[in-house]
Amino acid sequence: MRNLQLNSHGELQHLLTIEGLSREMLIAILDAAAPFTEVAEREVKKLPLLRGKSVFNLFFEPSTRTRTTFEIAAKRLSADVINLNIDASSTSKGETLLDTVDNLAAMQADMFVVRHGSSGAPHLIAEHLLATGSDHIHVVNAGDGRHAHPTQGLLDMYTIRNYKKDFTGLTVAIVGDILHSRVARSQIHALTTLGVPEVRVIGPKTLLPTSVERLGVRVFHDMREGLRGVDVVMMLRLQNERMQGALLPSPQEFFKSYGLTLEKLALAKPDAIVMHPGPMNRGIEIDSAVADGPHAVILPQVTFGIAVRMAVMSMLAGG
C-alpha cells in the first residue's frame, strides 16, 4: 500500500503525520523553511508562491494560535485564505465531515488545513479525496485528536536545529501530559527520525500512554532524574479538563512534581533550551522564572512556526 502522504513520485502530497516520513524529507522541509524566516524581516512580507491558490482552514476544534499562524503563512505566500470554524452545531445540522469536504472541493480548493478533535480525521479526508478523484487538493494536519500535530513537531525541530545545530548528539526530554498530546507524538517521531539518540518522556503513570517505550523513548517518572544532562526540555501544555477527574489530584501537586522550575532546570546542561508549544499555564507546568528566563526559546518557536508552515505549504502546492 502506498504511503497516503506521498504521491507516486515519492513527493509530499499531504502532511498528515511525521511518522513514516524519511529523515531526508524532514531535513528538506527544515531547509526550505530557513529562507522564509528572512521574509518576515522584510518591509514587504509577501512571496508569490501560492498566488491564485485557495487555502481553506477547516477548524473543527477551537484554536486561535495555530489557525492564525497558518493564516499568516498562507497570506505571506499570497494565497487566498478562507477560515471556517466549524463547531459541533453544524454537525448537528446533519452535514457530515465528508459532506463538508465535498462541498469545499467543489469550490476549487487547493489546500485544506484541518484541525479536528478526533484522531485520524485528516487521514479520512485524504483517503476520501483520493477515492473521489480530488486528490489534487492537499491536506495539512493542523492537529487531530491525540494523534499528530506535524507542523508543530517540525517547527520544534527547526527550533532545536537553530540552537543546537546537530541532532545526533542530543538528549531531549518531553515533560507532562504525553497521553493526550498530539504534539508529543509528533515530537517523538521527528526526534527519533532525525537521529536524536536519547528521547525521554517524563510524567506520572496516569499521563503516559500504554507501551510508550515502543515509540523509542525512555520513560522517567522522576522529573529530576529525567532532566539530568539534557540538551532540550520540551514542556507540554496541561489541558484544564485533565485537572478534573482522576488523572491528577491537583494543579499544585502536578507543579510540585512535574512543573519546570529553575531549580529543576539546573539539572539539565548549562546551555539547555526550554520549549513549549503554547499556550502556557504559568505556575502549573512551567514557572514564570523559567518561561521568561534565558533558556526559554518559546517566542522564537512561534516565529519559526510561520516559516515552517510556509515551507510545508509551498512544498505541497507551490508547483
Binding site: 511518522e19 484522531s119 487531530d144 494523534h147 507524538r185 500504554t210
Partner: peptide
C-alpha cells in the same frame, strides 16, 4: 485495544 497501536495513533484505549 489499549496497546502500542492505540498509543501510536492517539486512540483512547480499552485495557
Amino acid at each position: 485495544h489499549d496497546g502500542e497501536v492505540a498509543t501510536r495513533l492517539g486512540l483512547a484505549g480499552i485495557p
